[in-house]
């Protein structure tokens, strides 16, 4: 078999494969639920209800989506330039670390001055962390996939070391956790009485910001050009290495905001279980969004909904929560296939 590009794909050609991918994902999830001895319809219903069925559920989903929007944007920005940042998890912790370093009393300032400084410092920390793999790539030709992946392990151990050493909360009853943020360093809630913090708003603003950069700026154009065809971009006079470094700084900064928002908006202190893999899940979010920054918001809500829904489903129906991860993996693989099939025709020879 071989693949032939389709010049002008029809609407059906564009819509049917993604729809089939989604349907197949649901069918596979149902079969797995049956394997666990549960009724697939009630399992799917419980996931939906747990994710969007009540005000509490909806707020939980929005809160869970917040870090995923940031990491999803970080991945989308990087992948667009074919810079494979798999290290959003480490950059997230870099932002969280900076938040805790500055926000636990080191800077006794009012919120209006403190929060912008923390945000900026977090962005810089994440950007710096990704700068190292970026420079290793541009200077030495070291593949960034491996370095960013290994950085995740190194940086998490570094955080663990700090939490058991200099950053350990003396009031923490021996647990490896940092001291709590001072009230001025906390992100307030958007609406009084509703458990949703300004981190979510910041995530939406970032998504729009990234969209503007990608579609309206020279850097966005250069990033796309480098991603599409390096040789052509170089021929057109685009400084590839510089663009890659800028991409890395932007991507690392965005991922760090996830850590800032989780600590300042939700948790109030830094622990080793701050992120249950938000950095890795960001890759799924970005791919489901076709690397479109505004699509990232939608994809993050979808992914967060599946996770939150699966948590509550698991308690009610006694099906392991890993069902959510399987659904997302299947959705990811089928979706990249579906998008390809919308643009290419499979020809037998």
């Amino acid at each position: 078999m071989r693949l032939e590009p389709i010049k002008n794909p029809s609407l059906g050609r564009k819509l049917v494969p993604p729809a089939l991918a989604l349907t197949t994902t649901i069918v596979i999830a149902s079969l797995l639920a049956m394997l666990a001895g549960a009724n697939p319809f009630s399992v799917l219903g419980l996931i939906l209800k747990g994710a969007f069925g009540s005000q509490f559920a909806l707020l939980e989903t929005l809160n869970r989506a917040t870090p995923l929007i940031f990491t999803g944007l970080a991945v989308a920005v990087a992948f667009r330039a074919k810079f494979w940042n798999i290290g959003a998890e480490a950059q997230l912790y870099a932002g969280a670390l900076m938040t805790v370093l500055l926000g636990t009393g080191f800077l006794p300032w009012p919120s209006a001055a403190l929060l912008p400084v923390i945000i900026l410092a977090s962005i810089l920390a994440g950007a710096f962390l990704l700068l190292i793999p970026a420079l290793l790539k541009t200077r030495f030709g070291v593949d960034e996939v491996v370095t960013t992946l290994l950085f995740n392990f190194i940086f998490l151990l570094f955080i663990s070391m700090l939490l058991e050493g200099p950053l350990k909360d003396p009031m923490g009853m021996g647990w490896p956790k940092s001291a709590r943020l001072i009230p001025e360093a906390r992100l307030p809630r958007i609406f009084e009485g509703l458990r949703l913090h300004w981190g979510f708003a910041l995530a939406l603003i970032s998504a729009v910001g990234v969209w503007v950069i990608q579609t309206r700026s020279t850097l966005g154009y250069e990033m796309r050009a480098v991603g599409l065809n390096k040789q052509a971009a170089a021929f057109a006079g685009i400084p590839i290495n510089l663009v890659l470094v800028k991409t890395a700084l932007l991507s690392g900064g965005l991922a760090a905001l996830a850590g800032f928002s989780e600590v300042a908006g939700l948790k109030g202190s830094l622990t080793l279980d701050l992120s249950p893999g938000f950095g890795y899940t960001g890759i799924i979010v970005a791919m489901l969004a076709l690397l479109n920054p505004l699509g990232v918001v939608v994809a993050a809500l979808f992914v967060a909904g599946i996770f939150v829904g699966a948590d509550s489903m698991s308690r009610a129906a006694d099906v392991p929560t890993y069902l959510a991860d399987i659904m997302l993996a299947v959705a990811l693989l089928l979706m990249v296939l579906a998008i390809m099939l919308a643009r290419f025709r499979v020809v037998r020879d």
Binding site: L323, I326, A329, L332, L333
Partner: peptide, 12 residues
């Protein structure tokens, strides 16, 4: 995607 699928289906 395969890493995620293999890991999660193993845990499941």
């Amino acid at each position: 995607g395969v890493t995620l699928l293999a890991t999660s289906s193993t845990y499941y």
